[in-house]
Amino acid sequence: MQPVFGFALFAVFVALIVVLARNKKRFPANPISSFFFGFIIVLLAIGAANYFMVAISANRLYFWQQTIYGVSLGSVYALIALGYTMVYGIVRLINFAHGEIYMIGAYAGFFGVTSLGFPFYFALIFAMLTAALAGVIVERIAYKPLRKAPRLAVLITAIGMSLLLQNVGQKIFGSIPRSFPRQFTGLYRIGEINLDQSRVIVFAVTFLLMVALQYFVTFTKPGKAMRAVSQDRDAAQMVGVNVDRTISLTFFVGSLLAGAAGILVAIVFPQIRPTMGLMPGLKAFVAAVIGGIGIIPGAVLGGLIIGVSENLVTAYISSSWRDAIAFGLLILILLVKPSGILGRNTREKV
């Protein structure tokens, strides 16, 4: 009964937020209703917190363990989300095929380790480069000809590319899942918390890549050009930025990270299959939106939030509700602050 109760609470909470968000314009003008709604919200918050505190205090250790797992899963989402957010920031396109780039990264890593016999870190780089190449090819073939087409057409093309890559993947790799050979089997203990070596490595590599990305975007010339194009494409052209090349570069860098995510996920969850990109791809995109699409730290934040909440839902409620939490959070954020947690509100020019 408890999970249902928790979700019912959540649903009422969402409904109230919706009401509040809709009435934002006149809401503060009415002290009685604001008091009323405020009161209910506080009650609900206390109820929800109470519910979770009971669950957590039963086994505090378990909670932290799951949170840490969530962080490592979340960091993979974050890596994928970064590609989404960068591409969206620069061409305003939801690149649905990005999840498949991640799949390609996983397979490249797999063949790198097995057929080619690369050591892991070498395979990581191989996977990243293969994915990046795939990303740029997709951009050149499918998106570049549509640069001035209606946004919806590009979106549909992206969906088409996603399907195409998935099915070509099925054709080439076969639809039977493959097992990624175990790479890291060590186990660390900090106090009473277990840390698998593989998860630590996932986190460490992700962290390093994000630092590298931050450096690239902030201090290098191509990185600055990327930011310039995403902030104002015309102005970027006026200072002499080659916009087409910068867009390709963005796809390259974003796909590089997705490729890394592909192989990293495979060392924790070793089953890889051609359709593996769909759900993580969607959720990573959701992560990007939650954090504020187009904003690099936002993607990381969103990825971590989704990773942790998914793991907690799995641990405390049921794994079958896992897929709902990401989308639930998404809708909540969209209704309260459509531009995302770190997003800035933009207004239409009339």
Binding site: R92, I94, R151, L155, L282, F285, V286, V289, S320, W321, D323, A324, F327, G328, L330, I331, L334, L335, P338
Partner: peptide
């Protein structure tokens, strides 16, 4: 796009 994503989210939630 934001509407698209929200409808996607609702569609998935209904399924879940």
């Amino acid at each position: 796009d934001y509407l698209a994503i929200a409808t996607l989210g609702f569609g998935e939630i209904i399924r879940v």
